Computed example of a mutant assay.
Amino acid sequence: MANGFPAGSKREQGQQHERRAEQFLLGRGLSLVERNYQCKLGEIDLIMRSDDTLVFVEVRYRKTTHFGGAAASVSPAKQQRLRRAALSYLQSKGLNESRQSCRFDLVACEGTDINWIANAF
């Protein structure tokens, strides 16, 4: 049992891919602000910083692209939940959403490949 989750559980696998995505983004110059921000409106996998911009990162994993792949799995409803959770984060930190530069990135992990989509939505 790693991280409090049964070995091989979906949650444990999700955390492994989030760590992979985090390391990938750190290697490209972003810095970590927070992992797994949760509020009643949803969860944000990673919150990173790129210069003066807060980057809200959704990490998705799919073994294959048979059913549209990882990027296609982020529905408009999921995007809306992420926007609401990001607004909650900004408010909880006393940041003004109209003054704080933000963007939403997607890290799509498919098999062993990582595809980083900045400004995904």
Rank of each mutant, 00 (worst) to 15 (best):
A120R: 01
E43G: 00
A85W: 02
S73M: 06
K93F: 03
S73C: 10
R84A: 14
R103S: 11
T112C: 01
S101K: 06
D45A: 12
Q79N: 12
N115S: 08
S101V: 14
L106R: 00
L46Y: 07
F104S: 05
A118E: 15
L54V: 10
A71P: 10
D105L: 01
L82T: 15
L54C: 08
S98D: 11
F56Y: 05
Q100T: 06
I117C: 11
C109N: 09
N115K: 13
G42L: 02
I117D: 03
A85L: 04
R81M: 08
A108H: 00
T64F: 00
T112V: 09
D105W: 02
E110V: 14
K93S: 00
S73K: 07
C109P: 05
L87A: 15
D45H: 06
S50M: 08
I117S: 07
F56W: 13
T53M: 09
D51Y: 04
A120E: 02
Q100L: 07
L90Y: 08
Y89N: 12
S73F: 07
I44C: 02
E110D: 07
S75F: 09
E58M: 10
A70E: 03
A86F: 04
D52Y: 08
E97M: 11
I47W: 05
D45N: 15
L54Y: 09
V74E: 08
T53V: 14
D45C: 07
Y61N: 11
F121M: 02
V57D: 07
D52M: 07
A70F: 03
A70Q: 04
R49L: 15
S101F: 03
Q100P: 03
T64I: 04
